[in-house]
Amino acid sequence: MTFLTRSGDKIFHIAIIGLAALAFLELIVPLASVIWVSFFENKIINFPPKGYTLDWYANAWNMPRFREGFLMSLKVGFVATMVSMLVGVPAAIFLARTQFWGREMIQTILLGPLIVPGIVAGSALFMFLIGFEVATGVQIAQTFAGLCLAHSLIALPWTIRLVTASLVGMDRQVEEAALTLGARPFTVFRRITLPAIRPGIFAGGLFAFVISFVDLEKSLFLVGPGSTTLPIAIINYLEWSIDPTIAAVATVQIAAITLVMVVTDRFFKLTRAF
């Protein structure tokens, strides 16, 4: 290759690497700045900072909307993960183990929450739930239950995707051998299939949790007094002010998700999830 090197090669490589560097800066700089500013001592953002402090974290925790938002996001994320696993794992098994003619259609329907844009799906669900409330008197919109329903729905495609991926990747001969040796299908599932796909199930669950935790567009329509998630609390605050307190809140969200991601990566290479 070296004998072909011309000055054009060099410019080409510099341009490609320069643009790629710019791309990664565009991704990293906003996250890095929000983390950095959260430690600034001044109440307003000042550069260079006069000093560093952890006070804004305490301040954020003492503001009920952030504390309650954080706890609400944790609770909703947990319920959404459980529901999406309970209904998603059987669906994934079905999708991975059938050649049924309607398989493609079922898969498309189940990935629907990923395809329909959040704002459209969120407004539709909002109208549906209010309409339901008018018809039956049961309030679901703007309650914990409504948030859980919406979040289970957005988590579902991810659970199904990750669990299906591990099912397709596993060696079926072991299952078949067990069946040949007389094991009942449920025993095979419990003793062979389940342990083999456990990493996929863990990863699917953790992924579902993250997707639920950071959701904005759907929650927007369904939050109410006493049931507001952390991302909604963040953007509501941002409409009025931008200061180290909100940077601290954002940093807590970054830390929480990084933690979950590190755990997920142990079970399932993140690079395979997309």
């Binding site: 991704l27 990293i28 906003p30 996250l31 904005l216 909100i246 991601m261 690079t271």
Partner: peptide, 28 residues
Amino acid sequence: ILGSIIPLLMGNAVRVAGWMVLLADRGL
């Protein structure tokens, strides 16, 4: 690859907050 996936999973709210910290009239 992780450098592109991880920001994605942080959610829009946090990343928009990052840009506001940078671009506000009294931002970085």
